[in-house]
Structure formats: structure tokens, C-alpha cells
């Protein structure tokens, strides 16, 4: 039987993968992708709680909708900043972006 805790476990694993990836990666784009993993893990938690604990309003579904939009906006802005910085630094190593 698949319970709520199984889905929460997937969410926390995805969140941990995002944390580990964003810590050990040296590439800016890879770090951004790992941050998206963390956001996706949070979204899984939202939908799980909305499904199992909120039987009428499903507020978690709406929050996930907003989070998805915000995540896309955040990624677009971050990649644009990366593009501007890359023209100066000519490297995607995150250690060279300390002046941000």
C-alpha cells in the first residue's frame, strides 16, 4: 500500500539531491538545475499534503502552480545574470562568480 509517507520520502530525497548537487557542483548551470530539483521536492510535498490532508480546497495544488511560475521566472533571471557575467568572466566555474 502506498501511503502519504512514501510520497514525502520521495520529496525529501529529491530535496537532498538538490542540496548535495548544489553544494558539490562547480558549474553555475548545474547549480541552478539542482536548485530546481529542490523546488520540485517542495512541490511534491505540497501536492502530497493537499491530496491527503485537504479534501476540499486543494490549496497545495494552487501553491504548486504559483511555485512553478516563480521557478521559471527565477531560472530565467538567474540565467540572464549568468549570461551577462559569462561575457566578462568567460568561465562557468562558480568560484569565479564570488563578486556577485
Amino acid at each position: 500500500m502506498i501511503t502519504m509517507y512514501h510520497y514525502l520520502f520521495v520529496g525529501i530525497i529529491l530535496f537532498l539531491l538538490g542540496i548535495v548537487g548544489s553544494i558539490i557542483s562547480k558549474n553555475v548551470i548545474k547549480v541552478l538545475i539542482c536548485i530546481e530539483f529542490m523546488l520540485t521536492g517542495i512541490n511534491i510535498n505540497f501536492i502530497t499534503f493537499a491530496t491527503y490532508c485537504d479534501g476540499q480546497n486543494f490549496d497545495g495544488y494552487i501553491f504548486v502552480l504559483f511555485y512553478t511560475g516563480l521557478g521559471a521566472v527565477e531560472l530565467g533571471i538567474a540565467l540572464y545574470i549568468f549570461y551577462l557575467m559569462y561575457q566578462k568572466k568567460e568561465s562557468d566555474n562558480i568560484e569565479k562568480y564570488c563578486d556577485l
Binding site: 502506498i2 510520497y7 520521495v10 529529491l14 530546481e36 520540485t40 512541490n43 511534491i44 501536492i47 502530497t48 493537499a50 491530496t51 486543494f58 495544488y61 504548486v64 502552480l65 512553478t68 511560475g69 521557478g71 521559471a72
Partner: peptide
């Protein structure tokens, strides 16, 4: 992850997840 959303009963979030992410 969008398959997981579908399993959880949120088809619309699954479609949005697959389309955007």
C-alpha cells in the same frame, strides 16, 4: 515527477510540470 503528480490525483499540475519543467 509529473508521473508522481498524476498518481497523486493532480492531473493539471502533472501537465504543467511536464510542459514547463
Amino acid at each position: 515527477v509529473s508521473i508522481l503528480f498524476y498518481l497523486l490525483g493532480s492531473e493539471y499540475n502533472a501537465i504543467i510540470q511536464a510542459a514547463i519543467y
